[in-house]
Structures are given as C-alpha cells and as structure tokens.
C-alpha cells in the first residue's frame, strides 16, 4: 500500500517534469530564435537556418552607437518604477477601502470603477491628451507617469485579493486597539503581498512595454522609452532586424531580473498565506 503510494508519487512527479519541460521548450523557442538572430549579420536575417554563419556580437554595441540607448533604458526603468510604485500604493489603499471597510456608496463607486475598465482606452487617449495640454504636461516625465498611475484594474485586483483574507484578522487588530491605518500596514499589506507583487509585475511590464501613449506625448529624444526608441531599427531607412533583436534582448533583461526577484517573494507570500490563512 505504502510502496504503491510512493510509486504513484514518483510517476506523478516524472509526469509533471516531462510536461513542464515540454512547455518550457515551447516557450523558449521564439526567445532563442530572437537571441540567435541578434547575433546574425544583416544579410542572414532572412535565412531560416537558426545559427548564424558568422557570430556578430557587434550588433549589441551597434545599438548604442546608433541611438542613445542608455538614456532610453533609464527612462523606461524610471517611468515604469514610478508608475508601479504609485499604482501599488494607491490601489492597495483603495482596495482596502473597498474590501475591508463598510461604508455608504461603496458598492456603487466600485461598480463605477469596474465599468470604466470596459471602455476602450484608445478613445480616452484624445481627451487625456487635451488634459495634458491644459496641465502643460506634454513632453514631460510627469505626463508619462501620472495618467497611468491610477488604475481601476489594480484596485479591482487588490480588492479581490483582500477579500480572500479572513475578516477575523482585522477584528483581532481592532480589539488590540490598532487604528485602520495601522491595520492596513501591519496586517493587510503583509498578507496581500503576493497580490501586490503580482500587480507590481503586471504594472511594470505594462508600463515598460507601453507604446502608444509615450509615442503621442513625447517629443524630445531625452524622454524616449525603449519601445519608441527601438522603432528606429524597424523604420524604413534603418531597418536592421538583427540590431532590433539585440536591442530587444537587452530590453527584456530587467523584466527577467524583476520576475526572478518577484517570484522569490511569491514563494514566501504563498507560505505566509498558507500558515495564517
């Protein structure tokens, strides 16, 4: 009986490993292709042979020679970091108010939040642009950060997360004499950490990859983000797919690092939730 069980566990593990390896390989193919292409000479980007005949690491330095890639890099990281910070903070606070406090008009306001998410963002871009004109935020960092820094999505997400935290926890804190502000920081926020990190990763990635808004809002090169900057390598007179791929490979590195760090927190968050939940 016991041996059967162990055998069962073993074969299940084997099955899990095989499935995951297959999926991982499938996920990796295009990325690998991208890396290989980033080392190809321009003449070979058309070729469907995966390996370059001559390896050209110069493609990577060429990125920096042709555009101020370092500046783009900084801008992207800087803008995404601010956006992520603001979204996480304000969404968590709002999510707390929606999920853990009872007040008049709560559900109505929440539904309002929810409904605005259903309106295609494209069409709010023009009024928002008009607003930026009024506020004189065109071609500024603030204009790039602010409109994306308050998210109905984030509020919705963190509210859902905070709903799944057991209500007895706030009650206990309240009995201990904690204010709502203390409860929020000391009890709810630590428990909502997996949710916060998830939201953080989503927001960072979304902001990091966003193209249309910066494209319209920004004029000076100093404020270009990576997605706009990389368009150069796909523009009519400078189309160099190999260099574009090199620039792309470099641009995803921070996201991979972020995810690697983020997922460690996931694990601890998950354990935390498991113990206290």
């Amino acid at each position: 009986m016991a041996a059967d069980n162990i055998k069962g566990v073993k074969s299940a593990r084997f099955f899990i490993h095989v499935t995951l390896i297959v999926l991982a390989v499938l996920s990796l193919i295009p990325f690998t292709w991208m890396i290989l292409m980033s080392f190809k000479p321009l003449a070979e980007v058309e070729s469907y042979k995966p390996l370059p005949t001559v390896w050209k690491p110069e493609n990577y330095t060429s990125v920096f020679e042709q555009v101020p890639y370092g500046r783009y890099y900084f801008n992207s990281l800087f803008i995404s970091a601010w956006t992520t910070f603001l979204i996480c903070l304000t969404s968590a606070m709002a999510g707390y108010a929606f999920a853990r406090l009872k007040w008049k008009g709560r559900d109505l306001l929440f539904q309002l939040y929810l409904t605005t998410m259903m309106i295609p963002g494209l069409v709010t871009m023009v009024p928002n642009f008009g607003l930026m004109v009024r506020l004189q935020l065109l071609d500024t960092y603030l204009g790039l950060i602010l409109p994306g820094a308050f998210s109905a999505f984030g509020t919705f997400m963190l509210r859902q997360f905070m709903l799944s935290i057991h209500p007895s926890l706030d009650e206990a804190a309240e009995i201990d004499g904690a204010t709502k502000w203390q409860t929020f920081w000391e009890v709810i926020m630590p428990l909502a950490r997996p949710g916060l990190i998830t939201l953080g990763i989503f927001t960072f990635m979304g902001s990091y990859g966003s193209l249309l808004w910066p494209l319209i809002l920004v004029k000076s090169q100093d404020l270009y983000t990576l997605p706009i900057g990389m368009l150069y390598f796909d523009s009519m007179y400078a189309r160099q797919t190999n260099v574009l791929m090199a620039a792309s490979v470099m641009s995803v590195v921070p996201l991979i690092v972020l995810f690697l760090i983020g997922q460690r927190f996931f694990v601890s968050g998950i354990m935390l939730g498991g113990v206290k939940g």
């Binding site: 903070l89 969404s91 606070m93 709002a94 306001l109 820094a149 308050f150 509020t155 709502k180 929020f184």
Partner: peptide, 8 residues
C-alpha cells in the same frame, strides 16, 4: 484611503 486613487 480612497482619495489618492479616486482623485487620479
């Protein structure tokens, strides 16, 4: 709690 988010 809501204010910063609500304003934006």
């Amino acid at each position: 709690f809501l204010l910063p988010n609500l304003l934006g």
